[in-house]
C-alpha cells in the first residue's frame, strides 16, 4: 500500500505543470454553454426542466467527446514513458509492474471523476441560472456513480491502447472513433456490451429516464476493467525486452 502511494505521488510529479486542465475545463464548458443555449431556445418543446437540460448538456459530450477526453488523459499519462529512453527508468524501478500500472490508472480515474464533478457542477449552475426552481434530481447521484464505473472501463481500454501505441494523437483518434461507434452500438441495443458506450449509458446521456440493467452494466464494466488492466500489466512484463 505504501509503495502504491509512492507511485501515485511520482505520477503526480510527472503531471505537474502539464496542461491537463485545458482539456478538463474546456470541453464540458463548451457543451454546457451551447446545451443551455439550446435549452433556452426550445423551452416550448423541452418541458422536463432538469431532465431536459441534462439531455442537452450530456448528448454530445458523453457520446462522442468523453471517450476522446479520457483518451487524451491516458495518452498524457504514458507520454513521458514513451519519450527518449524513459522506459528503462520506469521499468527498472523496484516496484511491481501491477503497482506501476495502478499508479497510472489511479490518475486516469481521478481525472475522469474530476471531469464528471465539473460536468455536474456546470449542470447545476446552468440549471439555476436558467431559473429551474425544482430540487436537483436525486437520480443524478446514480448517473454519477454509473458514469464513473463506465469511465473507468474506458480508462483501462485507453491506457492499454496508449501503452501499446507510442503516438500521443492516435489513441485519441481511436477513442473518438470508439465514441462514434458507441452511438451505433447503443442504437442497436448493444450499448452495455461495448466499452465506449458504457460512460454515456451510465450517465443516461440524452435520456435521463432510460432504464438500464444495472447488474449487466456493473458486470460488463468490471469485466472490461479486469481484462484490459490484465492485458496492460502483461504487456508491461513483455515490454521489458523491447525497451529502448
Amino acid at each position: 500500500m505504501n509503495t502504491l502511494i509512492k507511485v501515485i505521488r511520482t505520477e503526480q510529479m510527472k503531471l505537474k505543470r502539464s496542461p491537463v486542465w485545458i482539456a478538463f475545463l474546456t470541453l464540458p464548458a463548451i457543451s454546457a454553454f451551447f446545451g443551455t443555449f439550446n435549452y433556452l431556445n426550445n423551452l416550448d418543446l423541452l418541458k422536463s426542466e432538469w431532465f431536459s437540460l441534462w439531455s442537452q448538456h450530456s448528448l454530445f459530450l458523453c457520446y462522442f467527446f468523453m471517450p476522446a477526453l479520457i483518451g487524451t488523459y491516458c495518452s498524457c499519462l504514458w507520454r513521458l514513458e514513451h519519450t527518449r529512453h524513459n522506459w528503462h527508468s520506469f521499468l527498472t524501478a523496484p516496484v511491481p509492474r501491477l503497482t506501476l500500472y495502478l499508479g497510472k490508472l489511479f490518475h486516469a480515474v481521478l481525472m475522469t471523476v474530476l471531469s464528471s464533478v465539473w460536468i455536474f457542477t456546470l449542470f447545476y449552475v446552468c440549471g439555476r441560472l436558467c431559473g429551474i426552481q425544482a430540487p436537483f434530481p436525486a437520480a443524478a447521484s446514480e448517473w454519477f456513480v454509473c458514469g464513473i464505473a463506465g469511465g473507468t472501463a474506458i480508462c483501462c481500454v485507453q491506457l492499454y491502447i496508449s501503452l501499446m501505441i507510442r503516438s500521443f494523437a492516435l489513441p485519441v483518434g481511436i477513442a473518438l472513433a470508439g465514441g462514434i461507434g458507441g452511438l451505433f452500438m447503443t442504437s442497436k441495443g448493444f450499448g452495455l456490451y461495448y466499452p465506449y458506450s458504457l460512460y454515456s449509458m451510465g450517465m443516461r446521456a440524452n435520456n435521463p429516464q432510460r432504464e438500464i440493467d444495472l447488474v449487466s452494466f456493473c458486470v460488463n464494466s468490471a469485466a472490461y476493467i479486469v481484462v484490459f488492466a490484465g492485458l496492460s500489466v502483461f504487456y508491461l512484463h513483455k515490454h521489458e525486452m523491447a525497451a529502448g
Partner: peptide, 23 residues
Amino acid sequence: FNQMIPLVTGLCGSMLGLILMYL
C-alpha cells in the same frame, strides 16, 4: 512540445462543429 494542447483544440473544434449545426 506537449501534444495535448493541439489535440484538445481539435476535440473542441469537433464539438464546436457539431454544436454549430444546431445554430
